[in-house]
Design a binder for these strands. Structure first.
Length: 820
DNA sequence: TTAGGGTTAG
């Protein structure tokens, strides 16, 4: 406006007063781009007149030198005036009008190019900024120390990795690689690319650094999830270099404390902010609030929030997110209501923060209401909101809306892909998760550490050793071979897929083992029935200086119970409280009930449950049911089943186990009663399925399966083996098998899915090699007895994983000691 | 004319 005012004044009589000009309505209107261009043209003419008014410097009109000199001078003056106009437009954020003026300018110089590139960068038109730089270079105009910070920033924000590297090379070539501003922008660029070592290299090679250099590196660490390195860097900058923490450093430090869950350090930084008079800044207060929320101190967060004199939507969102994060979903919703009383309008972040609260409450109604609100407010499509919605639906157990959202997303980030993969895994749809993982690899987005950590458990659940090996190979190729989170998942996967030897090899070769690594391997030994080895590993873990946690004891007590190491089990259970000051949790009590059941002391098991300081769950009564079943004590089993069904009326496993017991005891009427009760409740027994891998493929068998290409041979061999091990055709167990009782069809144990899978494994693999089979339900008595005998007869090791443990059948015996 | 996070998804 001032510019037009000035221009207008020049175009009119010199005697025109400011007051009279101010009274003209045209002057108070904002200048349009065209008006400015026209005005600029007018200024050119004025300037030309002025420059030609000095008779002392005038050259003969026909002189070539005079002509050239005049042209140059005119050109300089033109550019200077364009620059003023262009600068005004850029500063006003009117980048399109600035571009129009720029394009109409002949031979723009470095200064004008810089202005234009800055205009694009300020308007977040980063790709256009980079394009303008390319045009500048092609036009032969020299880029200077002002040009590069804008260009580097634009490369960083447009994810133009190749351009970024080319620009850096150019900076080195023109000798500007020591410039403070350029180096600072390069640190940020490399951090945004996730190339922290490149950012560090730029930082290290700087001849001089300022606070921005340090803050940029610290921020780079934080934004790449390297909270610890960020805190180390902050300490170093303060102590070794005497750099004071400013607003930026404090906010980065607070984020680092959130990442590393360092509440005490966060409080120290809070004190530092107070000492430096920054505590009244609303942004800093919100950052502090966020730090307290992320560290789980909602009491302090609430107190800080209450003390704030001013709050905005961001502040409210931080508090809502805090309550949702800290498992206080109702408080999160209460805040969302209160914020509206405070005249704050919920935005996309508010809704994104509320969705985990819906998931926590398992309240699809709340989730759907938020979804509807997002649609009504026109927030969709929105990448983060859609991903959060997908996650909410999946956690509420409804995958269909998640799939629809994912399918229809106009833009998908890697986080969206990961969320969908996790959604499948958490809902037991492991095959779909694996398919999606393969699909992801076909596109431009590569899997990251989250993807890998999500997909490995799917392989573990599918018990697909081949798939697991392929994922392991991918992990090594993709450079995640030293990531302890990923490697821990891989150890678990190998153990759950039945190959404990490879699990051990991965563990032994880990560059850095954490507590989880030990816990996972101890559990691996436990589920394979190698109790002694698990306890040896536990001792080695303590010798290595690691302190056991609750999960360690779950693994150790599981090992003791599965292997029947009663004395050791009680020793470790007691040591939890006496030596390590831990209160046993429900899982630990469950292991002890298993242990008591295994020692056949059902009375002690019942007393133990009655004296437990925790309310028994279905898992505890399930252990008692198993104990009753393995000790052939129908009364105890019935009592346990009653307790389970009181807590979980749809527990099909409970019905099946009880009916199996009745069948073993020859109580045909009770079998019928239990099975009809199941039918009345609309429950269905899980169809048994056994998997065995052959030639890199998983072969699946159901009971009586005849779909396999070699079915005739498999059934024939199974019948022969059945006879060889002396399995009677009229086995009383077979007659009263609940499957037969319900289906009323002949289904001899020799045709059970496990038997078919074992036989196929035996005939399709090299003589002497072990056979590995995975089963989706527990092994029935007949198959357990038969596979023991088959292992003796064939001289082969047969490994069968059920839903809980691995049975190693060898020389006619099973590692479970006939208790499972 | 140059560099820098308050809250959000896996």
């Amino acid at each position: 406006m001032h510019l037009v005012y000035a221009l207008h004044r020049r175009s009119n009589n010199k005697n025109t007063s400011d007051a009279s000009l101010a009274s003209r309505p045209a002057l108070v209107l904002p200048p349009s781009g065209v008006a400015i261009i026209m005005a600029t043209a007018f200024v050119h003419s004025c300037c030309n007149t002025v420059s030609g008014s000095n008779p002392q410097r005038r050259l003969p009109k026909d002189s070539p030198a005079a002509s050239t000199s005049t042209t140059r001078r005119r050109s300089r003056v033109n550019l200077a005036s364009v620059a003023r106009t262009l600068s005004s437009l850029v500063n006003a954020g009117r980048v399109r009008e600035a571009a129009s003026l720029f394009e109409s300018t002949k031979k723009p110089d470095t200064f004008l190019w810089n202005l234009m590139i800055r205009g694009y960068a300020d308007a977040e038109l980063y790709e256009e900024a980079v394009h303008a730089y390319r045009r500048m270079r092609d036009a032969g105009v020299w880029a200077d120390h002002f040009t590069f910070p804008f260009v580097v920033k634009s490369c960083a924000n447009s994810s133009s990795y190749d351009d970024g590297l080319r620009v850096h090379a150019k900076i080195i070539k023109v000798g500007l690689d020591s410039d403070l501003f350029i180096c600072n922008s390069l640190i940020t660029m490399y951090s945004k690319f996730g190339l922290l070592s490149a950012a560090e290299r730029v930082f290290d090679e700087m001849p001089a650094r300022d606070g921005v250099s340090w803050n940029s590196l610290v921020d780079g660490y934080v934004s790449n999830g390297e909270g610890w390195r960020s805190l180390v860097c902050i300490k170093h900058m303060q102590e070794a270099f005497g750099v004071k923490l400013d607003w930026f450093a404090i906010t980065s430090a607070l984020s680092a404390c959130s990442l590393e869950l360092r509440l005490e350090q966060g409080k120290e930084i809070h004190c530092h902010a107070v000492r430096n008079g920054l505590e009244s800044d609303i942004k800093l207060q919100t950052a502090l609030l966020d730090m307290y929320c992320k560290n789980g101190d909602m009491v302090y967060a609430d107190r800080l929030f209450g003390s704030m004199s001013r709050r905005n939507v961001v502040t409210w969102n931080a508090l809502i997110g805090g309550y949702a994060l800290n498992d206080e979903p109702l408080q999160a919703f209460a805040c969302a209501i209160k914020m509206q009383d405070d005249y704050m309008i919920p935005d996309t972040v508010t809704l994104v923060n509320l969705l985990p609260a819906c998931a926590e409450l398992r309240s699809m109604d709340h989730g759907k209401a938020i979804h509807a609100l997002a649609i009504r407010k026109g927030f969709l499509p929105h990448l983060i909101l859609e991903t959060a919605l997908m996650d909410m639906y999946a956690k509420c157990g409804d995958l269909k809306p998640s799939e629809l959202l994912f399918e229809k997303m106009t833009e998908k980030s890697l986080v969206s892909w990961n969320a969908m993969i996790v959604a499948y895994v958490h809902n037991g749809r492991n095959s779909e998760a694996l398919q999606l993982f393969l699909h992801l690899q076909e596109g431009p987005l590569g899997p990251d550490v989250f993807t890998i950590s999500s997909i490995i458990p799917a392989c573990a659940e599918l018990a697909s050793l081949q798939q697991g090996k392929q994922i392991h190979s991918y992990v090594l190729r993709a450079g995640y071979g030293s990531d302890s989170v990923v490697l821990n998942s891989i150890i678990n996967m190998y153990a759950r897929c039945g190959d404990l030897n490879i699990a051990r090899q991965v563990f032994d070769r880990m560059p850095c083992r954490d507590l989880v690594s030990w816990n996972v391997l101890i559990m691996g030994y436990a589920i394979h029935g190698h109790g002694e080895a698990a306890l040896e590993l536990f001792s080695a873990m303590k010798d290595a200086g690691l302190k056991p946690n609750q999960s360690t004891f779950t693994s150790v007590l599981t090992a003791c119970s599965i292997t029947g190491l009663s004395d050791e089990g009680w020793l470790h259970f007691d040591s939890m409280q006496q030596e390590h000051g831990m209160s046993p949790e429900i899982e630990h009590y469950g292991c002890m009930v298993d242990l008591l059941g295994r020692t056949r002391d059902l009375r002690a098991a019942m007393d133990f449950i009655n004296k437990m300081p925790l309310v028994p769950t279905a898992r505890i009564w399930g252990s008692l049911l198993t104990a009753g079943r393995n000790n052939r004590n129908i009364e105890v089993a019935e009592f346990a089943a009653e307790q389970i069904l009181r807590l979980e009326h749809d527990n099909t496993g409970c019905y099946v186990l009880l009916s199996s017991m009745y069948a073993d005891a020859g109580k045909r009427e009770d079998v019928d009663r239990v099975m009809s009760l199941m039918t009345q409740k609309g429950l269905h027994r899980t169809a048994a399925r056994s998997l065995v891998e052959f030639d890199g493929k998983t072969c699946s068998f159901v009971n009586g399966d005849k779909s396999h290409a070699q079915s005739d041979k498999i059934h024939r061999v199974s019948s022969v083996l059945s006879r060889k091990i002396g399995e009677a055709a009229c086995d009383p167990g077979a007659i009263f098998d609940p499957i037969d009782a319900v289906t009323k069809r002949a289904n001899s144990p020799s045709r059970h899915s496990l038997r078919l899978a074992v036989v196929f494994g035996l005939i399709s693999s090299p003589v002497g090699s072990p056979v590995l089979v995975k089963k989706n339900v527990r092994i029935c008595n007949h198959c357990h007895r038969a596979v023991k005998l088959i292992s003796g007869f064939s001289g082969r090791e047969i490994i069968v994983g059920d839903t809980k443990i691995y049975h190693h059948f060898s020389n006619g015996t099973c590692s479970c000691g006939d208790y499972w």
